[in-house]
């Protein structure tokens, strides 16, 4: 007989027989996974925000007010052929104004008093990784069709430099939280083994193999973790909705970018919970049911 035969059915039966234990396990796992989920959500949102920022143009060429659009397009074609350049975008004056209007969000009334459009048309260059921004900027500064060359904002450069370190730190903290969930599963399984000691003795007596006894515990831990992950996702979603600032922030910033909770994050959390359940289940049942206990 294969060890897994009927293991799911036996796991489900074990769970139904111990509603108190299920309550304890689900409550504690939900809280632990909610902490992990909140962290994961913030981490992923920050990563996305940083990615969005880092994908901004590496170089912006402001054109003179008098420059016709076809001149900007010719410049864009020329620069787009350079190997250092990944993408070129021409933003005419109207588009630039519209972009500013969107960034201002509810404060766009500030633009109402403007006479005409003060913004220049621009050619935005996104450079390939490793391209030297300063060398390219230097070569463009003397050209008559370019009024001003703007390189990446200094704060962004600093952010990009710090990003690698922050990613490593963030991952380390995430692993620590994940390990906490695994340890919680281990202890829950050990508690279950302790409560079912008499039942396990009987199973041992009638000739149940170690695998026959262990698999339901592992599956039970995985089921608990996945159900707890769903509950935790709901909690985090609700919490982040509460925390998201109801009033929009200036400059078009929106906290919902950081405090949004997508169903994809919920799926990632459920997958992590299943893995934690499997790892903790195997570890917990392995520690609690050593061979000499089963023989």
């Amino acid at each position: 007989m294969r060890a897994g035969d009927g293991a799911f059915r036996r796991a489900w039966r074990q769970m139904r027989e111990d509603p108190w234990l299920q309550g304890v396990a689900l409550t504690s796992l939900t809280v632990a996974l909610a902490i992990l989920g909140a962290y994961l959500n913030l981490y992923l949102n920050l990563q996305q925000a940083a990615q969005r920022a880092s994908l901004g143009p590496g170089l912006i060429l402001a054109l003179p007010d008098s420059a016709p659009l076809n001149q900007a397009q010719a410049l864009a074609r020329e620069l787009g052929a350079l190997t250092a350049v990944e993408r070129v975008t021409v933003v005419d004056q109207a588009q630039a104004l519209e972009r500013l209007r969107q960034q201002l969000g509810p404060d766009q009334d500030l633009l109402a008093g403007l006479e005409g459009n003060p913004l220049p048309a621009t050619v935005e260059l996104r450079l390939r990784p490793g391209a030297d921004v300063e060398v390219l900027a230097q070569s463009l500064r003397g050209r008559p069709e370019v009024a001003q060359v703007v390189t990446s904002r200094p704060w962004l450069r600093g952010l990009l430099q710090a990003q690698a370190t922050l990613t490593t730190l963030g991952l380390a903290l995430g692993v620590l939280l994940f390990a906490g969930v695994v340890l919680l599963v281990v202890n829950t399984v050990r508690l279950a083994v302790h409560l079912r000691r008499n039942q396990l003795e009987v199973l041992d007596l009638v000739g149940a193999t170690g695998a026959y006894v262990r698999w339901p515990f592992v599956l039970e831990a995985m089921l608990q973790a996945v159900v707890a992950a769903m509950a935790a996702s709901l909690l985090v979603w609700g919490l982040f909705r509460l925390l998201a600032a109801p009033a929009p922030l200036p400059l078009g910033l929106d906290l919902s970018d950081l405090l949004g909770f997508s169903w994809r994050t919920g799926l990632v959390l459920a997958a992590l919970a299943a893995v934690a359940g499997a790892l903790g289940g195997l570890w917990g049942v392995g520690r609690a049911l050593r061979p000499r206990d089963l023989a």
């Binding site: 027989e17 008499n198 003795e201 009987v202 007596l205 009638v206 000739g207 193999t209």
Partner: peptide, 24 residues
């Protein structure tokens, strides 16, 4: 071997003074 012990036990019926039944 440890793994063979369950197979041995399936060939032995054991009765105890305290029954060793699963009460629930």
């Amino acid at each position: 071997k440890q793994s063979q012990i369950p197979l041995l036990r399936r060939k032995i019926g054991v009765i105890f003074q305290d029954f060793k039944l699963i009460q629930g």
